[in-house]
Amino acid sequence: LKKVVALYDYMPMNANDLQLRKGDEYFILEESNLPWWRARDKNGQEGYIPSNYVTEAE
């Protein structure tokens, strides 16, 4: 899975979204639905995130 790091905080707009915290790492599960990607956080929560809020992890 592709790993990304959040560049900004993101508060979910609806139940399908995943909250982002700046500096945290996330795994990308699906990239087909631009600009929204399906992601999983370190706690196993899954949801959609804005792809322009993250960058690929080193």
Rank of each mutant, 00 (worst) to 15 (best):
L1P: 09
L1K: 06
K2A: 04
K2F: 08
K2V: 06
K2I: 07
K2L: 07
K3F: 05
K3Y: 06
V4W: 07
V4F: 07
V4G: 02
V5S: 04
V5P: 00
A6Y: 01
A6L: 01
L7Y: 03
Y8T: 06
Y8M: 12
Y8E: 08
Y10P: 00
Y10F: 09
M11A: 13
M11C: 14
P12E: 03
P12N: 04
P12M: 03
M13Y: 08
N14F: 11
N14A: 11
A15S: 13
A15W: 11
A15P: 14
D17K: 08
D17R: 08
D17W: 15
D17I: 08
D17S: 09
D17N: 10
L18V: 03
L18D: 00
Q19R: 12
Q19K: 08
Q19Y: 07
Q19I: 08
L20S: 00
R21C: 11
R21F: 13
K22S: 07
K22R: 10
K22Y: 05
K22F: 05
K22A: 13
G23Y: 05
G23K: 03
G23H: 04
G23C: 07
G23V: 01
D24E: 15
D24M: 09
D24S: 08
E25V: 15
Y26F: 05
Y26E: 00
Y26I: 05
Y26S: 00
F27N: 04
F27P: 00
I28P: 01
I28E: 00
I28F: 02
I28A: 03
I28C: 03
I28Y: 01
L29I: 13
L29S: 03
L29R: 03
E30I: 06
E30M: 07
E30Q: 10
E30P: 03
E30W: 11
E30V: 07
E31G: 09
E31N: 11
E31M: 14
E31K: 10
E31T: 11
N33I: 08
N33C: 15
L34T: 14
P35R: 15
P35A: 15
P35S: 15
W36P: 07
W36Y: 15
W37G: 02
W37S: 05
W37Y: 10
W37R: 04
W37H: 04
W37C: 07
R38S: 07
R40E: 05
R40V: 12
R40H: 04
R40W: 06
R40L: 11
D41Q: 02
D41R: 02
D41A: 09
N43C: 13
N43A: 10
N43L: 10
G44V: 00
G44S: 04
G44I: 01
G44E: 04
G44Y: 04
Q45L: 12
Q45R: 14
Q45G: 09
E46H: 04
E46N: 04
G47A: 01
G47F: 03
G47Q: 00
G47S: 01
G47P: 00
Y48P: 03
I49E: 00
I49V: 08
P50W: 07
P50E: 03
P50I: 05
S51F: 14
S51C: 13
S51W: 14
S51L: 06
N52Y: 11
N52V: 09
N52R: 10
Y53K: 05
Y53D: 02
Y53S: 06
Y53L: 09
Y53W: 06
V54Y: 02
V54Q: 01
V54A: 02
T55F: 08
T55P: 01
T55A: 13
E56I: 13
E58K: 13
E58P: 14
E58Q: 13
